[in-house]
Design a protein around this nucleic acid. Structure first.
Lengths: 217, 217
DNA sequence: GACAATCTGGTACAAGCGTACCATTTTTGC
DNA sequence: GCAAAAATGGTACGCTTGTACCAGATTGTC
């Protein structure tokens, strides 16, 4: 399975060789330039994820998008699953970071700002201009984790961070809510969105906004 | 694209030929046995849909599951999309029929029966024994329609029927609810379920039950 | 500056995919 | 019963996929 990938480590201890036979440290870049390439692949994969969902992440598509040769994808990632996971993580953390920066960058939020910020966090801030892609992605990730158990831990971790951030946001807007209330709000919005996806002229953000406004005090 | 598929219809009206050039009636079976085979393929595809999602519906897999040769799939269905659509429809309508029969078969529902029946309709009645597959399917279908626009009309139609059925169910349980209230309830449950899918030991039905009980008067 | 370690990128391959073809057999309509 | 229509099923094609290979270029370390 592994090729001449890890000829590094000149067998630190001969006895360890059988116990830690292979795999490991696959795809770790040890060079600044290598790290940059690896990151470029993750970002390319993330873009494809937004545009075409999980099915869009393919070795060839990712390599082409990143302007790198095909083999670089197998060099830096031991499997397509690892690439998918890194892409999901990159996109999720970028979105979380965007939200945190946004929050710290403004003072007290009025009701409208609060609404839009909550929608940004739950539907993706790119959904402002009506793009469906980003919206789809959040729910594809959630549902997709059902058939991709390896994603679940990551999704859970990012979900918890999102939850905490929403608690903060509501507090800063003067509408402090308990953890349970936020959980409920998330579920309500998520359910509204997935059901809005099948409308003939889907406007999930609009649907979510109506529900959210009715819910906020 | 079409082969000698539809040499039937000896051109009822020559003038119609150019206006309705091709496609049409592809895959329509004209024979009882043919209809049975076609149905067998739909059911096989539906099983695969439950087990492996959209990705599980493949010509070869469907044919093998139905015990039919590969070519039968292209003979009865003009494309894989049509097969997917029929499988989704079959599964959805079967579930709806199950619910209607269930409703008419029992008298006034008590609170617990009501809860379970609502969960059956929203998560799939096979989710009673903890199977995740059926649960996943409902949400894969909803989210999947985002990237498969051809499914949206069908999903909308079945969604409306589900909505109406839930209104009936609640009425029969002595908890009459407005259309808007039911819409909200559906969203709340759906959102709860998709968020429960990433738990380390997923129990979406349990999570939905807790929310539902808190919601019902 | 030399020597490993790391990275690069062109290429190859087997498997699986949707779809098409077509010589037969079965069924239908008259 | 017979011609025509429908159905059957084995087979093949062109394409995409994930992954493997490996000779050469680049880089980091001493």
């Amino acid at each position: 399975m592994l090729r001449g990938l890890a000829p590094s480590l000149v067998m630190p201890e001969p006895t360890e060789a059988p116990s830690a036979p292979s795999q490991e440290r696959t795809g770790q870049a040890s060079t600044p330039k290598g790290e940059r390439r690896r990151q470029a692949l993750v970002e390319a994969a993330s873009e494809l994820l937004v545009e075409s969902g999980f099915a869009g992440i393919r070795h060839r598509a990712v390599a082409e998008r990143a302007g790198l040769p095909l083999a670089s994808t197998t060099y830096y990632f031991s499997s397509i699953e690892e690439l998918v996971e890194r892409a999901v993580e990159y996109h999720g953390r970028t979105e979380l970071a965007w939200g945190r920066e946004r929050l710290s960058g403004c003072g007290r939020l009025d009701r409208d700002e609060l609404c839009e910020l909550v929608l940004d966090m739950l539907l993706g801030h790119n959904s402002r201009d009506g793009g469906l892609d980003v919206v789809l992605l959040r729910y594809e990730r959630l549902v997709g984790s059902g058939r991709r158990p390896y994603l679940a831990p990551l999704m859970r971790e990012m979900g918890d961070e999102l939850h905490a951030l929403l608690v903060e946001i509501l507090a800063q807007a003067g509408a402090p809510s308990s953890s349970a209330e936020v959980t409920r709000l998330i579920a309500l919005i998520d359910g509204t969105v997935v059901n809005a996806l099948i409308e003939s002229d889907p406007d999930p953000r609009g649907a979510a906004r109506r529900v959210l406004r009715a819910e906020l005090p």
